[in-house]
Each structure stands twice: as structure tokens, then as C-alpha cells.
Write a protein that binds this DNA or RNA. Structure first.
Length: 468
RNA sequence: GGCGGCAUAGCCAAGUGGUAAGGCAGAGCUCUGCAAAAGCUCCAUCCCCCAGUUCAAAUCUGGGUGCCGCCUCCA
């Protein structure tokens, strides 16, 4: 079965055929770095991580670009609140984002452009749009002339009339803009800024680039005028991606992306998890109690285009489930392979691998792919023969890796608090031995502990210990 | 108002024309000094409701009901 992907543009699954043979160019809209990332951002990152991992695993040469938006009103406002500069704030949250991504075992993108590094190409892009008659300057701002682009609305399935009637309602709150723009749906390519505010000089005066512009510009610069996959969260369909299409396609006269893919949201109590609603769990806080694998399983057990309703129960369920996979996978490292793997085992593995790839080929059906992982886990424990167990466990690890699971065995890693409890217990047992005049045992305990690098010191008030 | 999506067991969640994957929770048994792990077995006559198409529908069509997202920053 060939790979099928759901294309937002056509609203149906299509066979995946890259523009350039085995080379796949993909771009995902990354974060605006003005605050900590939450589970919703983790979902987006993990979904795209899995997509690119799978494409690589089936032999594509993937170039994956994920940008960082570090110029934005939200950044500026937040920085003002905190009394620091916007670029300082952006850098701080960029670092935090990287830390979160690393902790989640999300692969680094091949390129990670930042908006601030693309000011000059963005200005150039705007200039070209003006020259081509698709944009106009007004009071130091530059707007995209939506009416000049016939395909406007093709991604979000809206037509211009509908948007205009909708836009008129909102325009009441921004009447100053209504007088400047030719059309209420026209969007800013360049926004003038006051001196002292974050901004750059441009042919139209001091100002900042519009949000949509950076992605069009980065894609053009880094990947080219037409790419294979462009994606992001479903809320980006309109207006963000629609506007990117308008910018890029009106200028280049070719499809910006062949496949548009959008992931659904994480909800809390059937409501969207978002920064504006304040009902979010940060990645950082979740990772304090749950492993990266647990969060990944929670996310990938739901198909990427369906919403996930986040609950404490589902998180706990994922944690238990991961533990089972970890136990099975651990046997890969623990066991030895003796001789050839029997044909029936090889066949069983091949069959499961086929189930896995069939599921992934079906628009990245990770939920079904994961069931293949559990099926391998079952086989590991159902088999008595160590060599066969090893073969199944190795297959499990291999497939799990395609989905980005580490299956890291942390079962023996104990926290300092727990270690302290264990030492208390050991010293209690030693104390009992001493009280029974069983000095052989008490001396043995002290000697063994010393070899482990722990010194036990008897004192009138009882024994204490410290790391040597 | 416009556009789009969702409704499957106690919970999470696949399936989208051929007779209900998987995970969690639960029950029984095996193993076992106890416990945990592991194994075996069981756990939706039925997929929001109604009507229709079909030999056959959770899956298609029409009509309801409920919920959600986008149209304004948002992954």
C-alpha cells in the first residue's frame, strides 16, 4: 500500500507523491516564543516529528524546516509587562522551547529560521508583491490586496464575499484600519512602528513584518517556491496559511505546497487548550511527573486529525501502558541472540511490521501502529525461548523508534528522596543486628556500603552516612 | 451568519459498506510464603436518535439532537 495523506486543500486522502522523487521538503509553522509551551504545542511537535521520522524510515530524504516566530505583538506586549526587551524575552522562550523539544525526544529540524534573521528577504518579498500589483502601501503600512488573488479562500473553503461580510462585523472595532485598507480582508505585510518600538527600517518607513510573511519568505529562501508538505495546527488554516498561499502563489504562480496537513487540538473538558483560555499544562510541568514516552503515547494514541480530550485518567493510563512496553523492550538489551531466528518468528515479526507500515501509510494512523507495538510486546512475554524473545523485543524497539519512543528503561533509576529512604532502612536493619550483637552482619553492611562509596559513621545518637 | 469537524464499552481510542483494533480500569484462573511482574480466560448482539439505500451500514443518503473548532492572537 502506498502512503496516503489527508490534504486540507482537497479535503481528502491523496497518494503521497513528492515533487522531486525521493526528496521531500516539508515545513511546519513553529511557535511564537512569548510564553512556555503547553501540551498542545507538544502535540504539534510530536505529530510532525513522527511524520518526518516515518518518511525517513521508508527512505525519503527529508528536509524539515520549522520556524521560530520571534517578532510579534504578543512578544512585545509580554516583554513590556516584564520590563525586558522583546529579543531577550524571545531568546529566553526559544531556549525553553528547545529544552522542551529535546526532553520530548523531538528531532531537531534541519533548518530553524527565525523571523528576525529574515527581515531583509521579507522586505524584498513585499517589494516584489507591490511591483506585481498584489500589495499597496498606505500610511507606512503595506497590505496585501486580496482581491488581486483569485484563489483566495481555497484552503479554508471560504469565498471572498463571505469573508467580507464577516470581516465587516469585526471592522467596527478597528475603524481606523478600515479607512486605510482597500478591502476589510486585506492583511498587513508590513506594519509601521513608532521609533523606540521594535522595528526595522524599510522602504515604507520604520516598522515590522506581518506575521504571515515570514513563513512565505522562509519557505522561499530555505526550501524553494514550491514544497511538498506544509503543516501546522488546524487553527492556522485561516487566516495564516490562506494568507501565505496568497502571498506566495500570487508571486510565484505555482502551488506553494502540494500537501497541506493540519493537526487537531488538545482539549480540556471539551474545550480547546490554549494560552488565551489559561487552561493549559506546560510541557515542563508534565515532564516532572510523566516521561516523554508517556506524553508521546497519550498523543499518538489519537489520530492526529482528531481532538484529544486531555484528562488525568488518560495520562495515567498512558503511563501504565508505556511501562508494559518498556518491560518488553528491556529484554532486547538483556538477552543474547543464539543462532538463527526461527522462520515462524521472522514471519510473525514481518507480519506485524506490515500492519505497522500499513497503518502509517494510511494517513499516519499512529493509533493502529501503536497496537502493533503492543502486539510485539505480547509476543515477547508469550515466548519462553530467550533468543525468540530477543528477536521480538528488538523488533519492538525498532518500530517504537520510528514513532519516536525511546522506551528508555528508567525502572531502576531512583530519586534522591527514595535513596534516602533506602539508606534509612539499611541502617535500621544494621542497628537491629548490632542490638542482637550480630556484629558480623553489621560490619558486612558497613563494608559493602563503603565499597559502594558510602561511609557509615556510628555516633552516640545513632549511625549517619555520607557519600565518600 | 459563513466554513469545517466530532458523537463507538466504566474511561481513552481505531475502524468509514461485509458483520466491532489497541490501551487503561475491572472479574476469574495459573504461577506464588506474601506481593509485584508475566501467562490464560472474560469484559460493546452493537457503534447519539429517526427514516432511507443495499443481499449486507457503526461505515452511504436525508432529517434530527448534542458538542467542538475556525471566521480576531492561538499549535
Amino acid at each position: 500500500m502506498s502512503l496516503q495523506v489527508f490534504n486540507t486543500l482537497s479535503n481528502k486522502k491523496e497518494e503521497f507523491v513528492p515533487i522531486d522523487g525521493k526528496n521531500v521538503r516539508m515545513y511546519a509553522c513553529g511557535p511564537t516564543v512569548y510564553d512556555s509551551s503547553h501540551l498542545g504545542h507538544a502535540r504539534m511537535a510530536i505529530v510532525w516529528d513522527v511524520i518526518q521520522r516515518y518518511l525517513r524510515s521508508v527512505g525519503y530524504n527529508v528536509t524539515f524546516v520549522r520556524n521560530i516566530t520571534d517578532v510579534d505583538d504578543k512578544i512585545i506586549n509580554r516583554a513590556k509587562e516584564l520590563g525586558i526587551s522583546p529579543d531577550q524575552l524571545a531568546r529566553q522562550y526559544t531556549f525553553e522551547y528547545w529544552r522542551d523539544m529535546y526532553a520530548l525526544n523531538v528531532m531537531a529540524p534541519d533548518f530553524e529560521p527565525k523571523a528576525t534573521e529574515f527581515i531583509a528577504p521579507m522586505i524584498q518579498f513585499v517589494r516584489e508583491l507591490i511591483d506585481a500589483g498584489h500589495a499597496y502601501e498606505a500610511n507606512g503600512d503595506v497590505y496585501f490586496d486580496v482581491a488581486s488573488f483569485n484563489d483566495y479562500g481555497k484552503l479554508s473553503k471560504q469565498n471572498l464575499e463571505q469573508l467580507q461580510s464577516g470581516a465587516r462585523e469585526q471592522v467596527r472595532t478597528q475603524e481606523d484600519l478600515a479607512s486605510i485598507k482597500k478591502n476589510p480582508v486585506d492583511f498587513a505585510l508590513w506594519k509601521s512602528a513608532d521609533e523606540g518600538e521594535l522595528g526595522w527600517p524599510s522602504p515604507w518607513g520604520y516598522g515590522r513584518p506581518g506575521w504571515h510573511l515570514e513563513c512565505s519568505t522562509m519557505i522561499r529562501t530555505v526550501l524553494g517556491e514550491s514544497i511538498d508538505i506544509h503543516g501546522g495546527g488546524e487553527d492556522l488554516v485561516f487566516p495564516h496559511h490562506e494568507n501565505e498561499i496568497a502571498q506566495s502563489e500570487s508571486l510565484f504562480k505555482k502551488n506553494m505546497a502540494k500537501y497541506w496537513m493540519h493537526n487537531s487540538f488538545v482539549q480540556v473538558s471539551a474545550e480547546k487548550m490554549s494560552k488565551s483560555l489559561g487552561n493549559f499544562k506546560t510541557i515542563k510541568s508534565l515532564l516532572e511527573n510523566y516521561s516523554a514516552d508517556t506524553l508521546r503515547l497519550l498523543i499518538l494514541q489519537t489520530h492526529y486529525r482528531n481532538p484529544i480530550d486531555f484528562t488525568a485518567d488518560s495520562l495515567a493510563a498512558a503511563k501504565t501502558a508505556v511501562l508494559r512496553l518498556v518491560r518488553a523492550a528491556a529484554l532486547d538489551a538483556e538477552l543474547e541472540q543464539n543462532g538463527d531466528v526461527p522462520a515462524k518468528v521472522r514471519d510473525a515479526i514481518a507480519e506485524t511490521e506490515k500492519q505497522f507500515s500499513d497503518a502509517m501509510d494510511n494517513d499516519f494512523n499512529t493509533a493502529v501502529a501503536i497496537s502493533a507495538l503492543f502486539s510485539l510486546g505480547d509476543k515477547v512475554f508469550q515466548t519462553k525461548d530467550a533468543s525468540e524473545q530477543k528477536a521480538y523485543a528488538a523488533a519492538l524497539v525498532r518500530l517504537a523508534k520510528v514513532l519516536g519512543f525511546t522506551l528508555a528503561d528508567t525502572r531502576k533509576k531512583i530519586e534522591p528522596e527514595t535513596a534516602k529512604g533506602v539508606m534509612d532502612l539499611v541502617l535500621e536493619l544494621r542497628k537491629n543486628a548490632r542490638e542482637n550483637k550480630d556484629y558480623a552482619t553489621s560490619d558486612l553492611i558497613r563494608k559493602e556500603l563503603a565499597q559502594l562509596g558510602i561511609n557509615v559513621m556510628d555516633a552516640p545518637g545513632g549511625a549517619t552516612w555520607e557519600k565518600a
